[in-house]
Amino acid sequence: MIAVLDLGIGNLSSVRSGFLRAGEETTVIARGEAWEELLAARDDVTGVVLPGVGAFGDAMFQLRASGLLNVVRGAVREGRPLLGICLGMQLLFSLSEEHGSHVGLGVFPGKVVRFPNDVKVPHMGWNDLTVVKDHPLLAGVRKGDYVYFVHSFHAVVQDEQHLLAAAQYGRTLVPAVVAKGSVCGTQFHPEKSGPVGEKILRNFVAICRAWTAPKGEKAHV
């Protein structure tokens, strides 16, 4: 069971249908006090998805107002598999320049900036991936595989180690997949990216199912 966080902005049915096609059930979490509380109520939850459409600032506001920020932080602290999709991936960075300046979750050092004006914005459509680092999330994904993007802002990765795959748009090399420990993110929409996206969702499901609590260091409540 995958917990899909509901920021009240976007439509979650695409993400839920995507996971169903990938062979996994989802449960929507709209409010949260603490990660431990969520697990106490839903002990079958194996991983977390942070989807997202809309604006960065609004989404961060919603994360705080709904208490879901604690759920995200708790999951990260425990080392649970967490996948941010599109804006959900951007929220995991330190900072965004979308409509002013907004502080993000800070899992990935780096900031989120707008595309230059010499390309059409949003970056909308199918673009091909260059995989730069092997990772279980990208098992079976090859260089040149196409995935579906739709976004006007993109992340700038500060630590190259976090970059798993990228896509070229104009003169920008767009970070397409990032990972750090148990946390990963895709700038594209795997749930809308045909068979390649479905493979990535299946990989995430497998990562979640294989997860076991790190021995000896239970998260502090």
């Binding site: 809308k192 045909g194 479905e198």
Partner: peptide, 11 residues
């Protein structure tokens, strides 16, 4: 729309 959205994995 709901039936189509459930079946297809493209936008």
């Amino acid at each position: 729309v709901a039936q189509v959205a459930e079946k297809v994995n493209i936008p």
